[in-house]
Structure formats: structure tokens, C-alpha cells
């Protein structure tokens, strides 16, 4: 009888070793795979690059125009979704304001109305003034702004990520957007 018990115990030890081995292998395999799953997370600005919006002359002084660009991180199978749009407002010869298309409320595409000089969002009725500051509706802040530079007569913006409240496009600290 005592022999039997000993035999069972020995087998259970083997079972435990088997379970431990499986656990260890699973852990060894799974931990790197967590890295695979978390792959899309990048450091702040890690997705950004200087993007060419075209010649400065394409944007008339005093007007706000829609510009589109291809996101720097695009995949070959992205199709049209590789593209993105932004609003370019030229205030002075060398001074621009470049707004993200996404409403600061929930990311819907805002439209510019040059007659009333307002941006309106079709989703929940967010409204912004020409300088991107919040005019009315649910948005918690003004439009997201991209940083820009003019190089060899070309307008470049620092972008690449969908702007949200968490990353704010490539905003210079809240910018002029809240002077109201």
C-alpha cells in the first residue's frame, strides 16, 4: 500500500515537472510576443517626420486652403487611407497656421467656410474661428496645429500621427489657439 502511494507521488512529481516545463516554454515564447503586440506603441513624436505640402506659392496670402499629404508611416496596402488632409492658413508672407483636419472633440473632419471664416464640424457641431481657436460646441480646445517650416520655397509640416487629445499632432505648447 505504501509502495502504491509512493508511486503515485512520483508520478505527480513528474506531472508537475511536465506542467512547469510547459509553463516555462510558454513563458519564453509568449513574452517576446507581448512585444509583438505592443509594437505599434512609439515614443512621443516617434511617428513624425517632415512632410512636404508643396510650394509655398500654392497657398495664397490671407486664405485657408485644404492640403493633403501621404503619411510618412504608410504601408503599401493602406490604399487611400495612407493620405491625410490639413488646413493651411497663410497669415503673412512666411507665417502659417496649419490645422489638423480632425475636430478636437472626437476627430471628425472639420470644414472651412471662408465666407463666415469658421471651421464647422459635421458630427457634433464644434465650431472654430479662423485662427483655430474654439468658437462654440463641445470641443475642449482649439484645433490641433502642426509645426511647420519653410525650406527652399516648400512648406513642410511635422506630422504623421492622427492628432488626438493624447498627442496633439505636433503642437507647440497650446499655440495661439486659446487667446480668446
Amino acid at each position: 500500500m505504501s509502495d502504491d502511494k509512493a508511486a503515485v507521488t512520483r508520478r505527480w512529481v513528474l506531472v508537475s515537472i511536465g506542467a512547469l516545463l510547459n509553463g516555462a516554454v510558454a513563458l519564453l515564447v509568449a513574452v517576446p510576443v507581448v512585444g509583438y503586440l505592443l509594437g505599434p506603441i512609439r515614443k512621443k513624436g516617434g511617428y513624425n517626420a517632415w512632410i512636404d505640402l508643396g510650394g509655398v506659392s500654392e497657398f495664397p496670402l490671407g486664405e485657408t486652403r485644404l492640403a493633403s499629404f501621404v503619411s510618412p508611416g504608410a504601408m503599401p496596402w493602406d490604399g487611400a487611407t495612407a493620405k491625410a488632409a490639413c488646413w493651411v492658413r497663410r497669415t503673412q508672407e512666411e507665417k502659417f497656421q496649419i490645422f489638423a483636419i480632425n475636430c478636437a472633440h472626437l476627430g471628425c473632419p472639420v470644414r472651412w467656410f471662408p465666407q463666415s471664416e469658421l471651421f464647422m464640424c459635421p458630427c457634433h457641431g464644434g465650431v472654430y474661428y479662423a485662427d483655430g481657436s474654439r468658437a462654440a460646441g463641445p470641443p475642449p480646445r482649439g484645433l490641433f496645429e502642426y509645426e511647420y517650416k519653410v525650406q527652399n520655397g516648400k512648406l513642410l509640416i511635422d506630422g504623421g500621427q492622427m492628432p488626438t487629445l493624447a498627442n496633439s499632432a505636433s503642437v507647440r505648447k497650446e499655440s495661439s489657439a486659446c487667446t480668446g
Binding site: 503586440l37 505592443l38 505599434p40 506603441i41 512609439r42 512621443k44 511617428y47 503619411s71 508611416g73 504608410a74 504601408m75 496596402w77 493602406d78 490604399g79 487611407t81 495612407a82 491625410a84 480632425n102 472633440h105 472626437l106 476627430g107 504623421g160 500621427q161 492622427m162 488626438t164 487629445l165 493624447a166 498627442n167
Partner: peptide
């Protein structure tokens, strides 16, 4: 935009949700 409102980890969560910087492939 909703996920981005999560405090502290909103940014990484958006990246995870979208699988990258933008809504795409």
C-alpha cells in the same frame, strides 16, 4: 479620440487601437 482621453496611457492606447500612427491598413 475617446481612447485618447484616458489619462497617462491614452497615447499608447490609441497606437494599440489603430495598430500604428494613423487609421490605415
Amino acid at each position: 479620440s475617446i481612447v485618447a482621453r484616458v489619462p497617462f496611457i491614452g497615447g499608447p492606447l490609441v497606437d494599440l487601437l489603430l495598430g500604428g500612427p494613423i487609421i490605415a491598413g
